[in-house]
Design a protein around this nucleic acid. Sequence first.
DNA 1: TACATAAATGACTAATCCGTCATATGACAT
DNA 2: ATGTCATATGACGGATTAGTCATTTATGTA
Lengths: 109, 109
Amino acid sequence: MTLKSIEWGTPHSLFFKALANPARMSIMSLLHTEPRSVTEIFEELGFEQTMVSHHLRCLSFCGFVKSNRKGKSKIYSLNKETIVPILEIVERHLVKYASSLYSCDVLER
Amino acid sequence: MTLKSIEWGTPHSLFFKALANPARMSIMSLLHTEPRSVTEIFEELGFEQTMVSHHLRCLSFCGFVKSNRKGKSKIYSLNKETIVPILEIVERHLVKYASSLYSCDVLER
DNA sequence: TACATAAATGACTAATCCGTCATATGACAT
DNA sequence: ATGTCATATGACGGATTAGTCATTTATGTA
């Protein structure tokens, strides 16, 4: 029984996987208001520094944030082009289905 | 070190988690063309029946597909309202970043 | 009713993910 | 060059996820 082709399959699900982590989402949420250094991010969110770096690495690779050095710091900013329009759609969906998402046992607990 | 509040955090990442699975994406891709029964889906994709049922359960809960009985079968169809506009944005993003997504070791290979 | 087909459920485990720890690299100042 | 602050990297292990198997429930038919 071989796996048939997959139209939207892998690349699309990778895209969503990048966003499917609460820490990464909260980092992006912070950057949405304004650019910040790694230190500012981990202090404001109460995360480990290394954790933030790992996630920024992912977000950076995947094109959701960009960065530029400023002295010893590195300032990360959100690439709003993709994430902002998506968030609007997500929020519209959540109005109806947020509570259902929580009760989906396939997704957690 | 307490965790500060998270603007887009958990509900948003749950939304994306639902989409962050290649099997679920390919099921939705199939349903995008036209509604199908569970049997049709698992045969066309070469998946296990139970696997498809599990994923449909999730997608249904989360509001991405809907279903209605037709005799012994149950016909699933895509709720295009959310997924279609998002897919357009995703695809635009993928034009630039698809290969990067693959090379993101945080997400795996 | 008994049977057949269709779909759903639950439990189990292999694979994957993610946060942490230890450590390394980079940048600037003295 | 050395020290210090800022960020990044790599490896490891606990937690989570997703697919499979066995079984159950649902629907329709003889």
